[in-house]
Design a protein around this nucleic acid. Structure first.
Lengths: 360, 360
DNA sequence: CACCTTTGTTGGATCGATTCAAATTTTTGC
DNA sequence: GCAAAAATTTGAATCGATCCAACAAAGGTG
């Protein structure tokens, strides 16, 4: 069997090197991980043996098991992987996460999957020291899945009210209030809302009942903020059409159709994401409805693209990158405690909002 | 919060569960990895024990060592991590890679580092089955580092002439020819080139000597293509200023200053990246030089943003996402052979190129 | 009832390293 | 020249699982 295995390229292990160099594997290991403690002559001999046998260096797989720490954090989402590179919000957030990881030399592992079963498996088997959860949709489910792993994790967006999970997010109520107040102060009295999902797999005009039982409290909070501010200006919030979308182009357009199908169109649109707001601007403009001449639009998020749209988007800016940085640091210097941070938001007035038309 | 004296909560291992449930560790393992082969009663007993002891499920670290496969591919670059999310070219490429990974359920690990030493370490210790190398700059060095790891890898951009390494790239010569020919056909005769780096740490106007000894052959190929096409139209290529930048805003602006400082300004700029081309458009426009009225600009890459610039950028479109997809698949179904693929490029004529001004 | 399947369970071997207490060798001090 | 101190080296134990040949028990057959 000796000669027949000639071509069988079983990978070379550290132990093989040790034997070839005539030292124990303990010493061989030291040559690679703490070279300074082994005598120069021996060190050279082992290195020479490694070189001669084509050894690739200690296999991280083996090292990992012993060391325990992977030195990488996982970022998980229910969206497909390409979401991390396509979506402006995600990208900005990832840039923040990257920054924190770069600073400590940690790596980033992107975790996602086509279907839920695979996602569960991928979360179970991801080689990471902790997770950052992108809870855009399916947040509760994602948290559930991750909790099983018993690793530190932090949810982005305090979507869930469950305060046993660490989370970082913004003050949605305050932000929404700011947006609505801005429009009301400009004189608007007829509004429509483009909302993020309240629950899984539902879209369309939303009833008060659905709002009360919203699974995604982030969405609910923004609506609460809108209504709170508008009430103060004497607007009858019960009459405001709230259209739930999936935060994509198709469902946003459907929402706009529905909103403008009725008799008296709104003069201002409150969109719960910049993405929807920008689709709205495009949709309105294409129909000859002037923004902000006929209808004002205010977004939410503050993605970089919002400054570039035409007209530039008035929006509620979240400190997106900062959220990412903090989330990463929370995992990197995890101390066993649950932390929930709420960051402030800011109204950024640009060109998409103005006074309502005189005729209205 | 209760009693921290609970003890050192050593993580629970599969073996602990096995003992608690009174079965062998082999059986306990089967309960999790091949539940169908263990008798229901036993299965439930083990699961119950796991639940009771707060077992997080088989640790991937252990599994990994046995299985060998990580089921993730590493994407490495010498740029900081945030490059993956900021740069349009990188993002488009990553989207392609994501797609291929999503399809097979593989994960993506981003590998980078602040300094070269750390990069080397991170490449050594990344838990991946193979690498995709983003050889924007420092390509040869990155290849070197990765080769040591003895894992499959593929370089993006056939930057190196070393054909023992797998690579995917585009036909730079043909693409550059297309760009130059387009401008020459429009009537341009006075050109300037904004070039990508020819070698590490050099910028400024480039001498023929530097071109011949270029470390980055991709850059050289593009220049060769430009010159080849222009010669055919009787242009004296020796007189064309070639300014080497670092493909960032600052050095591109410096290049433009240098190019337009001379007596007779060019009527057309050949930029080796869309990034530079877009900076050029902005720079020219800000100076009151009309694009394409006074000066035409043609880019290279075909990033999505190019279509959105004002005026929209004429460019040589690479199948960026397709390159990513192929690279990922090459690693995912690695068969031990070296593969070098060259993909075609396409001239996309948009608004940034036109005939030269009459007066010139 | 002996014999063959089928189905389930066991425990040792293995994956590839690191660690550390103990053993060994080399230096140093006098 | 010798003991104590310092510097190296050793090898068993460990990290946490999976795999698989061997074994045991239950079911079927003539």
């Amino acid at each position: 069997m000796a000669s027949s295995t000639e071509g069988n390229t079983r990978p070379i292990r550290l132990a093989d090197i040790a034997k070839a160099a005539g030292v124990s594997h303990g010493t061989a290991s030291n040559v690679f991980s703490r070279p300074e403690i082994v005598r120069e002559e021996v060190r050279e001999r082992v290195k020479a043996a490694a070189e001669a046998m084509g050894y690739a260096g200690p296999d991280p797989k083996g090292r990992l098991l012993r060391a325990g720490k992977v030195n990488a954090i996982g970022v998980a989402t229910t969206e497909p992987l390409s979401y991390f590179f396509d979506d402006p919000f995600a990208r900005t957030m990832m840039a923040g996460i990257s920054e924190a990881c770069d600073a400590t030399g940690a790596g980033i592992a992107l975790v996602s999957a086509g279907n839920e079963e695979k996602l569960a498996w991928n979360i179970q088997s991801a080689l990471v020291d902790g997770f950052i959860l992108f809870c855009i949709e399916g947040g509760p489910r994602l948290v559930e899945l991750t909790r099983e792993r018993k690793l530190p994790f932090v949810a982005l967006e305090l979507g869930s009210e469950d305060d046993t999970v660490s989370a970082i997010g913004v003050d949605n109520v305050a932000g929404a209030r700011l947006a609505a107040q801005h429009l009301a102060e400009l004189g608007h009295r007829r509004f429509a809302v483009l909302a993020l999902p309240f629950a899984d797999d539902s879209t369309g005009l939303v009833s008060p009942e659905q709002i009360r039982t919203a699974a995604y409290t982030g969405t609910r909070d923004r609506l609460v903020g809108y209504f709170e501010a508008l009430s103060r200006f004497g607007v009858d919030t019960a009459g405001i059409p709230v259209y739930e979308t999936e935060n994509d182009e198709a469902s946003t357009r459907a929402g706009l159709e529905a909103i403008f199908a009725g008799g008296e169109p709104p003069t201002a649109i409150l969109a719960m994401s910049d993405r929807m707001a920008m689709v709205a601007i495009e949709w309105l403009t294409a129909r000859g409805i002037a923004v902000p001449g006929d209808v004002s639009v205010v977004g939410f998020d503050g993605v970089p693209e919002a400054a570039l749209s035409i007209p530039a988007l008035t929006t509620i800016a979240q400190p997106i990158a900062e959220i990412g940085r903090r989330a990463a640091r929370m995992i990197l210097d995890f101390d066993g405690t649950v932390r929930r941070e709420t960051l402030g938001v800011e109204l950024v007035v640009r060109a998409s909002s103005g006074p309502p038309p005189k005729t209205a």
